[in-house]
Design a protein around this nucleic acid. Structure first.
Length: 559
RNA sequence: UGGGGCGUCGUCUAAUGGCAGGACAGCGGAUUCUGGUUCCGCCGGUUGGGGUUCGAAUCCCUGCGCCCCAGCCA
């Protein structure tokens, strides 16, 4: 179909490098998360990109933990991140830790000092900030800028040995305090942090800053193309400066735009607030855009990867509509999910002309998209449950389902006609009395008559109970980060927990890894909160619902 | 404001001097024992102004708008 597949700007750069032989036709990328939080759908874009590039060019990709800040980082995130990357479907060539290069990084810093390109500065954080200048004013040189190499060597050595308290000294690059790029105004290379590191313990009390560490990590690992997000664009000069000064192998940093998704947040800060404020139930809450949350909700890695194939790689800001992700999800689930019947909000139906005590086993197709999935038996009897939404006493125009005197098809079963509506004292509908047409067994009328509606159902006595959790977007506005008050734009209906839902019997032994379509409702996925007695299902995503859309339109017209 | 980056349908994204195309969304229709799926059709865009050119989204000039940077975070 599609002739020449479009190549994005990063592929073009690499193609060009492979023509000129810039990296000896080698391609090696890396995914460099800091182990200080969970991976989210935004990371997935980067993961798919860097692992995808490596695969496409027959190169390699490292998973590298950028663990240069012991205060923020924890071992548990190291494990969680590996788990998430694997779940997405990628395997790294090397598992690396920035902290494994601490000695090399230190040695390089010594080299820089000896070259006269770095100095130990006694300014406090506040003083550094002041002397850095502003966007329009140049900075001022630190009074410690011209210490001798010997003095710097001695001081730096003592910094490493733990002679000084936190924050009392830094090692800084001697570049240019008047540089228009603030990152070049004598950036800090090392800071003193007497802290326990998840990997190196108490071996070090000085830790490298990102700008110093990252390029060295790339260089040490022989990375060719170091892909990162756009906000690091003004860090590229410092990335290049360090590697040039050290005269070491020099990878190329290339920046691309990160992924944003409508109706959700991606910043670690906001995600953390959601968790710590108790607005969601943990990092793997199925409403969270974290990979662990999406996994629990029932997203498939394939659907996420397919989505990433279409988001595009470019430099401009972008906000992908969540609808596109969901389209990819449905697309994947439609093909793989077996169909079952489940009634979320049950309404009792008595088939008055059906013999008491009789149970028939009817054939139901497991997946119309996959013949090999076969079929199953569903029990039919005199007492059934249907969805409350599938009956309206005074049906509006275009409503095809059940109403007084109306005939509909019970899927895979019989045509039934509603004769009687039973209400309680408050006037709530509690039961429907219907009659069935025995000639329509299986769902077809021999006389050729048609019904507009087909509804799902479960047997009252042969069904099992379950809790079902319905999820919706977490926020009411497309760009929640634009709001000052986080809580104002939280969707109060992002989770609707239903109890005593009625499931088809065959759902009693569904596995934790199985994606199921509840017919006419959506795709569902069993939650680990399930117990032996009470299964819990998460709604991954609802089916497209043109009736709901119509209904909304009709309501809007009334108003 | 100094520096860096970015502007193409509602949203993403192609076209890199030669018919502005695709996906999602929206709208309409066909098929259907899921108001699902599938299929068909429609709608809709080059940030403004000037210039170069037979021809400009693309090149030049000049506006305008948006994003990022003043952590001893990454």
């Amino acid at each position: 179909m599609s002739e020449t597949k479009h190549r994005h700007f990063i592929q073009r750069i690499i193609d060009e490098d492979n023509v000129t032989g810039k990296f000896d036709n080698r391609v090696h990328t890396r995914f460099p998360p800091e182990p200080n939080g969970h991976l989210h759908i935004g990371h997935a874009k980067a993961i798919c990109l860097v692992f995808g590039i490596a695969e496409e060019y027959g190169g390699g990709c490292n998973l590298r933990f950028d663990d240069t800040n012991p205060i923020a980082e924890e071992e548990k995130y190291v494990d969680a991140i590996q788990n998430d990357v694997r779940w997405l479907g990628f395997e790294w060539d090397n598992l690396c830790f920035a902290s494994n290069y601490f000695q090399q990084m230190y040695d390089y810093a010594v080299q820089l000092i000896k070259q006269g390109n770095a100095y130990v500065c006694d300014l406090t954080g506040e003083e550094i900030k002041k002397s850095r200048g502003t966007l329009r004013e140049p900075g001022k040189d630190s009074p410690f800028r011209n210490r001798s190499i010997d003095e710097n060597m001695d001081l730096f050595n003592r910094m490493k040995n733990g002679d000084f308290p936190n924050g009392s000294k830094t090692l800084r690059a001697k570049i240019d305090m008047e540089h228009p790029n603030l990152n070049m105004r004598d950036p800090v290379i090392y800071r003193i942090l007497h802290a326990n590191h998840h990997n190196t313990g108490n071996d070090w009390c000085i830790y490298p800053m990102y700008d110093w560490a990252h390029g060295l990590e790339d260089s040490i690992e022989g990375v060719t193309h170091s892909l990162c997000s756009i906000e690091f664009e003004d860090h590229r000069p410092i990335y290049d400066w360090y590697l040039d000064m050290l005269d070491v192998y020099h990878p190329q940093q290339i920046e691309f735009a990160r992924l944003n998704l409508s109706y959700t947040v991606m910043s670690k800060r906001m995600l953390k607030r959601l968790v710590e404020g108790g607005f969601v139930n943990g990092w793997d809450d199925p409403r969270m855009p974290t990979l662990s949350g999406m996994r629990r909700r029932g997203y498939t890695p394939e659907s996420i990867r397919n989505f990433m194939d279409e988001v595009g790689i470019a430099k401009r800001e972008n906000v992908m509509e969540i609808a596109k992700l969901e389209a990819k999800l449905r697309d994947d689930l439609n093909k793989r999910a077996q169909r079952r019947m489940a009634v979320l909000n049950p309404l009792k139906v008595i088939i008055t002309n059906y013999p008491e005590g009789k149970v028939e086993e009817l054939d139901a197709i497991n997946n119309p998209e996959d013949e090999s999935a076969g079929s199953r038996k569903v029990p039919f009897e005199r007492e059934l449950f249907i969805e409350q939404d599938d009956f309206i006493e005074d049906p509006p125009k275009n409503f095809f389902r059940l109403g007084p005197g109306r005939e509909v098809r019970l899927r895979y079963a019989y045509f039934i006609t509603c004769n009687n509506v039973i209400k309680d004292e408050q006037g709530n509908i509690v039961e429907l009395h219907c009659t069935y047409d025995p000639e329509t067994k299986g769902g077809n009328a021999p006389d050729g008559r048609k019904v507009r509606g087909t509804i799902h159902w479960v047997s009252a006595n042969e069904s099992i109970d379950a809790d079902v959790r319905l999820y919706d977007r977490l926020f009411t506005i497309s760009d929640p980060s634009s709001s000052d008050n986080f809580e104002d734009v939280l969707n109060p209906d992002s989770l609707i927990a239903l109890n005593e839902c009625k499931l088809e019997r065959s759902l009693s032994d569904v596995g934790l890894e199985e994606h199921i379509q509840f017919e006419r409702l959506g795709y569902f996925y069993k939650d680990p909160d399930s117990t032996n007695g009470m299964p819990v299902f998460n709604r991954t995503v609802p089916l497209r619902n043109t009736w709901a859309k119509l209904e909304k339109q009709q309501q809007n017209q009334k108003n």
